[in-house]
Amino acid sequence: MVGQNWERVLWKQQPYPDNYVPPSFLSSLSKNPNLREYAYWALILDSCAVTQHLSTIFIFLAVFVRLLDCTFDPRLLVFISAGMFVTGYALWEVLDYTQVGWIDGSADRRAKTAKASILVFLALMALAPILRTLTAATSSDSIWALSACLFLLNAALADYSSTSLSGRVRERLTSVLSMNAAISAAVVLASRLRDDLSVFALVLFSVQLFALFPILRHRLQATPSAVQFGSTLILAALSLAIVAPLSGAVACMFMAVLGSATFLAPAILLWAQKYKNEIRGPWDAATPKVS
């Protein structure tokens, strides 16, 4: 054509028509630049957090049903909660020790934790009579619907990511919302119970399950996969074992939900990845890197 080579510049008048398609057209286009091929087992491992979370919700519901029809002693639940707290805290300390190493001033920190937990314990106990009559004017049907919605919100917004090894939990707005939804659901459910002790026990239990356990779960996700698989398996089995005597149908549905969350959903994600077509090029807004 013309002796002069085409250049990708606008300031120069070039002997090419304005609609000339240079050979370098779209050369800086990149497709799926940061594609990470998923591996099925890694996905299953990542889905363990979801399974664990669903299991805790079902464990909570099963415990609630038992408290409601008085087949479960609330005093026992209080002891279980206390035991869970102590075990969880011990586990936390062990993880801290193995992952981060020994930190100075941990005795002071532990004293603070103990003080805070005793305060929460007493506050809940004092609040129990109020919580019991909180929704006395609301019909039970509304409560079931409300708590179902809140649990759905909780499961949808929960933070299933794992923390980095620094041990600092990144607080996102959604994870806070999720925790609030679960605690609200627990409170409205507890207000259906008959005596103050049951209310106290259930709310205490819900704090263990929905406020403290997710924090521990983040740390657990950074542990070897065997530990994760093991804890998931134990939780799922436990929840199934508690739910099954109450209702076979619910147990079957729950099992189906757990199975699809753990095995089917990763498979679908893996299959859908071949449709991924992400286009990147010089027109994309850059992300500023500020140190």
Binding site: L10, W11, N19, V21, L29, W283
Partner: peptide
Amino acid sequence: HTGRENTVLRANLPPEDVYVIP
């Protein structure tokens, strides 16, 4: 030219129909 590549991709146009006039 960057805008042209972008438009060709976004609107699925044949590149010959897209002109660059700064």
